[in-house]
Structures are given as C-alpha cells and as structure tokens.
Amino acid sequence: MSQIELITKYMTTVLTKDNTGHGTDHIMRVLALADKILPNEPDADAFIVHAAVLLHDVYDDKLYDSETDVIAAKNAMISFLLSIGVDPEKIEAITDIIDNMSWSHSLENATHLTLNGQIVQDADRLDAIGAIAVVRAITYGAVKNRVLYDPSVPPRIAKDKATYRSNDSTTINHFYEKLLLIKDKLNTDTARAIAIPRQQFMLDFLSEFKAEWSLEK
C-alpha cells in the first residue's frame, strides 16, 4: 500500500462512526474537490494536500468531548504517520494546515496558510456550501440538539471561537453566520468558480424555507 492508501485506511478507522457530517463521505468529497483545484496550482505539493485533506477531521475538536481527547487523537495521528515513514517535515506541514484552516480558528487568528493549506481549506469549505451543505448543516444541528429555526433569534456576529461554537443560535442562522460568508473567503480561482452556483442554491433554499415557514407558500 502507498502512504496515501494507508492514510485513507487510518482516516476511515477513526471517522467511520461519525454522525455529524464529518465522516468518510465528507472527506472523500473534499479530496475530490482538492483534485479539481490542484491542476491549476502547479506549485502545490499533492502529497501534503491529499494527506491534510484525509486527516483534517481526525482530531477536530468538534468531534471530541475534551481537549485531552483532541490532543490524544492528534498525537496518535502523528505516531501513525511516523510509523508509515512520512518525513517529519511533511508531518509538520500537514499538522500546520489542520491546526490553522478552520473557520473558528480564523475568527481569532490571522494565520497565513501556505498554498497547500489554501487548497485544503478551499476544498473543505466548498463542501460546506451548496446542496450537500444544507443537509450537513441540518444533520449537525440535529446531533447537537440545535433549534432548527426561530425568527425571533437573529444571526450572531461571532468575533471569537467561544461565541461561534456556543449553542444559542439556530441551524438556519448558521447559514448567515458562516456558510453564506464562505464564498468571499476562498483562496483560489478554481474554488471561487465552483462556489458561485453552490452559493445561489443556498440563497434559493433559504428563500423557499422562510416562505414556507411563514405560510407565504
């Protein structure tokens, strides 16, 4: 097996039981999106991009109960990569991407991602907009017992991770708090082109949802 095949197997083992929308199906879509971007970014390192995509949710703090569990998951991933012969410098590049690519991280830190990181971030964010993203948002909200919609609760302007992650908003508000903002935060021309129809789908969905909610239709 190649290193990427072994990494894929490791990721599948870790995320196979995920029910929040961050499971293996999400990872493989992000991988396919990264492969749409990579041909237009010849200076990127495909191995680092692929590895970071495959592993970016392996120690995502949204999926763990405590910081201790997150640290243990990250250390286990690093030990695994070393065990299959991945160069320590490449491991550092992979973890640097994972540690700095998230939306919540960007609220508090203006970290400049490498080109490899920008591609991974774009691919991940593209899976957070569009039709599948609507389903993922509703799925995540249901798992977290989040209210679907309450017209009396306005969207928040989150300035920090704690506010963004708090559960005092609604699933529909999440579109205004993050998902609709993604298009203008993408790094690559390829991602920006892919985002245009996905953005429009979400706008159309929200318009229809609110019309039906208020019985205008």
Results as ranks from 00 to 15, higher is better:
Ser169Asn: 14
Leu179Ser: 00
Ala133Ser: 05
Glu177Cys: 00
Ile37Gly: 03
Lys74Gly: 07
Lys161Val: 05
Ile119Asn: 00
Ile91Tyr: 13
Ile48Met: 04
Tyr176Ile: 00
Phe205Gln: 01
Met202Asp: 05
Asp96Ser: 15
Ser152Trp: 06
Gln118Thr: 02
His112Asp: 15
Ser79Asn: 15
Ala191Leu: 01
Ile37Tyr: 10
Lys185Leu: 15
Ser169Phe: 07
Phe80Gly: 10
Ala110His: 14
Ala133Leu: 01
Ile132Leu: 11
Ser166Val: 09
Tyr176His: 02
Gly117Lys: 09
Lys183Gln: 05
Leu55Gly: 05
Ile84Val: 12
Ile71Ser: 05
Asp87Val: 12
Lys90Glu: 12
Ala46Cys: 08
Asn75Ser: 12
Phe47Asp: 02
Ile129Asp: 02
Tyr59Asn: 08
Ala73Tyr: 01
Leu148Tyr: 04
Asp127Phe: 08
Lys17Trp: 00
Asp65Ala: 13
Leu113Gly: 15
Met77Asn: 11
Ile182Pro: 00
Gly130Glu: 02
Ala32Ile: 09
Ala93Phe: 07
Leu107Val: 04
Ala123Ile: 00
Ile27Thr: 02
Ser106Cys: 09
Ile132Gln: 11
Leu126Asn: 11
Glu212Ser: 13
Ile129Tyr: 08
Lys9Cys: 06
Ala142Pro: 08
Ala162Phe: 05
Ile78Gly: 04
Glu5His: 11
Asn75Gln: 15
Pro39Asn: 08
Asn100Glu: 02
Ala46Leu: 02
Asp43Asn: 14
Ser102Asp: 12
Glu67Gln: 15
Ile97Leu: 06
Pro154Val: 13
Val53Thr: 15
Leu186Pro: 03
Leu115Met: 06
Ser166Ala: 15
Leu55Met: 06
Ile78Gln: 10
Ile48Phe: 04
Ala73Lys: 14
Ala142Gly: 08
Gln3Ser: 14
Val58Gln: 04
Lys159Leu: 08
Phe205Lys: 07
Lys36Val: 14
Gly85Trp: 03
Ser83Asp: 13
Thr163Asn: 04
Arg198Lys: 14
Ala211Met: 10
Met1Tyr: 08
Asn40Val: 07
Lys144Trp: 14
Glu208Phe: 10
Glu5Ala: 15
Thr111Gly: 01
Val70Gly: 06
Tyr149Phe: 10
Ala46Pro: 13
Ile129His: 01
Met101Trp: 02
Thr68Met: 04
Ala191Pro: 04
Asp60Ser: 11
His174Glu: 01
Tyr176Phe: 03
Leu115Val: 15
Ser152Cys: 06
Ser66Gln: 02
Thr13Leu: 07
Ser66Trp: 02
Ile196Gly: 03
Asp99Ile: 14
